[in-house]
Simulated scan of single mutants.
Amino acid sequence: MVKDRSVIQIWIIAYKTAQKAAIYGLADLFSMAEYACAAKQKIKVEIISDEALYSVGKEIPNVIILPPSLDKIPNRSDNQNLLKFLLHYHEQGCILASICAGTFILAETNLLNNREATTHWAYAEIFKYTFPNVIIKEDKILIDDGDIITAGGMMAWIDLGLRVVERFLDRSIMLRTTQFMLIDPPRKLQSSYINFMPKYNHGDKAILKAQRWLLNTNLRKVTVKDLVNQSGLEERTFLRRFKKSTKLTPKAYLQHFKIERARNILASTNASIDQISWEIGYADTSSFRKNFTKITSLTPREYRRKYGIKT
């Protein structure tokens, strides 16, 4: 059926474990966008359950959205009918969009193969293992690749919804929608939200011994050599096994570990930047600032302003 160009058709899939707050939040956001454009553009939102996939009308929607999942990662065996449904409408020119763990469902269609996509940073490793042909960019909150849009994080439905408004209406309407709803325009990065989560379940006892030692040691003078000594391994063996176990070189691991410690101190104390830099083993504060900004996409001062406990 030919689309009525005066109406933007948006379907939100209420699959079994989909987050209801995202489903109805998106519906409200699009309603506000319609209000923001003074009724010059009609937005029709339909919430479609698994049972109703093949009872929808013959019209082709502009966008189909897969919300986040409350069960973290959707069960692959539950989605066979949904996958056929998504592929059918994508072939008809419909844009497919996913949020957080919803990207796991979208990836099962193979439409993401050899393309960039994002999901929640905490699911990135298992996503890479499950879908090795997808170029996952967990540092990004939103990736708009034309016919496919992916967003990371359970609350990234706001960012995705605003991006859809911007594409089908215009930027001014999107910004007016944010003003009505008292929310920020779409964010770009997850970097400042990502916690460093070391891998401890790799099964290499020597590497684990070094990791656990690091948890309770003074970081001011820690070096890679100290980690080698704690492991009891020959250096070349340690470097090879450490990278295999943690997916990071010892140098990169130490850097991420120190920056994570700095994040905690910045958020919970009023210690000066110089003092924190010294506390975690940076003799040069400018080097600390540079590495902190590289990893979190915020300067230490910006990070404290955003996440620090006000005292």
Rank of each mutant, 00 (worst) to 15 (best):
L266G: 03
W278M: 13
E235W: 07
F131R: 04
K72N: 09
A33S: 09
K20Y: 12
F104K: 00
G308Y: 05
K221D: 09
A206E: 14
E235Y: 03
E235D: 12
I194N: 00
P250C: 10
V165Q: 06
A267E: 12
S192M: 14
I149R: 01
L219R: 08
L70C: 05
L239I: 13
A27C: 05
Y303R: 01
L111V: 01
L266S: 10
T269D: 09
P67L: 06
R212C: 06
K20P: 00
L111A: 07
L248S: 03
I47P: 01
G102A: 08
P67H: 04
S297N: 13
T118I: 05
K244F: 13
A21M: 12
N62Q: 09
L106P: 03
Q255A: 11
I64Y: 01
S286C: 05
T293R: 10
K244L: 15
I43F: 07
Y54L: 10
F238R: 02
H90K: 12
C94V: 11
L175C: 03
P300V: 08
S69Q: 03
T17K: 04
L227M: 15
S287K: 15
A206T: 04
D78K: 11
T285C: 11
L182E: 15
H202L: 04
M155N: 12
N201L: 05
V228D: 01
L106V: 00
S277M: 04
A267D: 07
L26G: 01
G232S: 01
A21F: 15
N201Q: 09
K42D: 11
K199L: 14
L142E: 00
Q80G: 05
I99R: 01
M197P: 00
E59W: 14
P300D: 10
T17S: 12
Q80W: 08
H120L: 01
V7G: 04
M174E: 05
T311G: 15
R176L: 15
L215R: 13
I183Y: 06
S55K: 15
M174V: 08
D28Q: 14
A124H: 02
G146C: 05
S55F: 13
N133C: 11
L162N: 01
I194F: 06
N62K: 05
G152S: 08
L208Q: 10
I65H: 03
S31C: 05
A33P: 02
Q211K: 07
Q255K: 15
N81G: 13
M181H: 06
F85L: 07
G203T: 10
T299K: 05
I12M: 06
K188P: 00
Q41V: 14
A39I: 07
L142P: 00
A21C: 06
K209F: 12
G161K: 02
N113A: 09
A156L: 02
L248E: 12
L87D: 04
T130C: 06
S191E: 03
D28A: 12
I48T: 04
I105A: 07
A97M: 02
Y282L: 14
S55T: 15
Y54Q: 11
F292H: 10
G146V: 02
T177N: 07
A107N: 08
Y35I: 08
P186L: 06
